[in-house]
Amino acid sequence: MKHTMAMESLGDLLGQWPGGNEALAQADRLMNDLLEEPLVQRLQNKYPELSRDVLRLNLNKVYQYTTEYRNCSNCPGLERCPNDFEGHYTLLSCETTGSLVQLNERKVTCKKLLAKQSQDLIRSRVRSFYVDEKALSRGYSADEILTNDLERMKAVGQLMKYIDVTKEQGLQKEGLYLAGMFGTGKTFLMCYMLYELAKAGYTGAIVYMPEFVEDLKSLMHEPGKLKETVDVMKETDLLIFDDIGAENLNPWVRDHVMGAILNYRMNRKPTFYTSNYNLDALEQHFSFTNKDGDELHKGQRIMDRIRHYVQIVHVKGHNKRGK
């Protein structure tokens, strides 16, 4: 009764304004159009107890319901979501308690936001040190990996098998050593592996060696930050040293940083490498000649932590840099 009186009072008030009757008539037409929406009619079919009077009492909810449904049907993309609560839409349901019929609303997360949240979670599992973020943020597909360069099919097959075995059996003790010429897609393949295994719940880190080694010179004076960086590399499930052998290495980095990381990860977690050099050439790189025998021994020692804990993958193909 109070609601009817309020509506009548509102009608009287509108009628007294210049053009008030027309405004009221237009409001009635808009309300009737809204109640005739196929979406609203489907809602009434689902809940027969949902009378037009109840719908009229909940016009704001009904309007938002139909508007957001229309927005989602013509989705402009998550970044330009026009709904009140980005990435969500309104659903209505009906609840009857005794003679009281209530129209309830709830917010539902849309598929695009769910997909983004899933991708964000996957990417949060992967850390990069001086690697182009584009290499990690792009999407990958098995078809793209397989067909990008037919010359590297054997290498891709080895990589796919490794991913499958890890998903089935858990982390392996051995990693992979991807050796090949410049621009054959070694980093691309490693990022694909990180992405696929991040989807399975594994954490990973990829380190671009030339820049990492240069940055370590400044980290020498920041022991807290150095320890934090080294600890991440020790503990992550999958660690990739990208372009190893291209760095301007020094004994301290080799023995106290690389050595410490690899010594910790032995028999615990797999380590991966991409390089333009084979293992013998990498050993020469690690064996500095300025102190001859002593450095040769130290170079061999770190290679023992690499050579015996990797499967060799020869990556052939065309140079894709700059394409």
Rank of each mutant, 00 (worst) to 15 (best):
Y195I: 01
Q311E: 14
Y69C: 13
P18K: 14
N32G: 10
G20I: 00
T66C: 01
Q119C: 08
Y65W: 00
T229W: 02
L176R: 00
Q172F: 00
D231H: 13
Y69G: 13
S93I: 02
I312A: 03
L146M: 14
E247H: 09
L159V: 03
H297Q: 03
R152V: 06
T109R: 00
K61D: 13
T184H: 09
R307M: 07
T229H: 05
L30K: 11
P38K: 13
S118N: 15
T166M: 14
T147M: 05
Q117G: 03
D242A: 08
L50P: 08
E133Q: 14
Y273P: 04
K2T: 04
G317Y: 04
G204P: 02
D53H: 13
L171H: 10
K291V: 12
D237H: 12
L159T: 04
M181I: 01
L238S: 10
E8T: 14
R321E: 12
S118M: 14
L197A: 08
L171T: 09
V165H: 00
T4E: 15
A281C: 10
Y277N: 04
P251F: 13
L197W: 04
A6H: 06
L136E: 01
Q102W: 04
Y273L: 02
I122E: 09
K186P: 01
M5S: 09
N71F: 15
Y130E: 04
Y69T: 11
P38A: 12
L194K: 02
M193V: 09
N148T: 10
T96D: 08
E49S: 10
P210T: 03
G11Q: 11
D304R: 08
G87N: 06
F288S: 08
L171N: 11
E211W: 10
T97C: 04
L113R: 01
A115M: 03
T67S: 01
G322A: 03
S128V: 15
K46P: 12
F85S: 10
E295Y: 11
R138V: 07
Y140W: 01
E37T: 08
A23W: 06
I261G: 06
D53I: 13
L39S: 07
G245V: 06
E211L: 12
Q44K: 13
R268D: 11
L197R: 01
F182S: 11
M266R: 10
L24D: 02
A205F: 02
E235V: 12
K107S: 11
Q158T: 00
V257W: 05
E214N: 15
K316P: 07
K107N: 06
L189H: 09
N21G: 12
T229Q: 06
C81I: 10
N278V: 00
E168H: 05
T274E: 03
N21W: 02
Y177W: 11
I306G: 10
D143P: 09
M233N: 07
V313K: 08
S128C: 12
Q172C: 00
L43G: 06
V230E: 11
N276A: 03
A135W: 11
V156D: 00
V313D: 05
V62D: 08
E36V: 02
N45R: 15
D292G: 15
N248G: 10
L121R: 10
G98W: 03
Y65G: 03
L146E: 13
D292Y: 13
K112P: 02
D84W: 06
Y273A: 04
K2P: 00
A246M: 01
G15W: 07
L24C: 05
H308M: 08
